[in-house]
Write a protein that binds this DNA or RNA. Sequence first.
DNA 1: TTTTGTGT
Length: 278
Amino acid sequence: MWRRQARNLGVSLVFVMVATGLWYTQERDYRDRLSWMGVPTWEVLSPTSVHRVLRNDGFLVGWSDVRVNPLWVSYTLQTVDDPRAGPRPDFQRDWRTLWPIAADSYFGSGYDRGHLAPNYAIATVHGRGAQQQTFLMSNISPQRPDFNRRLWQRLEEVVIDHFAPRFGTLQVVTGPVFPERFLDNVLNRVGLVEIPEAFYKIIVVPADQPVALAFLVPQNVRGNEPLDRYVVSIDEIEARTGLNFFPNLPEGAARVLEGQVRTQGWELEKVARLPSRF
DNA sequence: TTTTGTGT
């Protein structure tokens, strides 16, 4: 009798291992397609940096159930000949998040529901389904109106309208930065959702000799500041977030790409002072 | 064409 049970258990174990292997292989393929040199990982095992990856059409989300925020989103952009975005969908709850964050969870807070993977760029490059998923609340962080509608909108517009045509293909990783003080983390929230003090955006031209441009912008901007004021190294963003970006990049290449600020070739001066649309 | 809140 016990032999048959042992055999059944063995068959079940093999089945689970094969299924897990297949799932893992497929999941890794999907992540590799959507994220150059690997999705961000955390440097140290702390509750505030642990996250899990949510798959969407066209973009990945590194979701934290502790911050109740995406810690990063990752997506590629290409030049599109005839860019078209459908009408703005409604914001939607994402049932994959542990916490109930509804479309109206930000009402009356004074904060905007700020997209991390942006509506317009994702819509034009990755299509309607991907656009709808940018309106999942798992892709949203609390952003001050002057930040979201003015400076951050200008930056997103520069990425899709200037950088993408200039370089053809881009890898973008963007996300929030939180205050260092623990009490601020606990108390500074819109409902359950922690309020970031800044946001970062990393733009990479994925080539044999990759180049990168990174921004770190505080929430309290007026909105008309020149964008080049906020250029930083990727190392600085890693220090502020505790994340490791592009973990599959060889160490020597990472030192060059992440350790220094190189704005040559981006023609930032042409786009840093464009007026805001709103 | 590209961001939102408003309040039911």
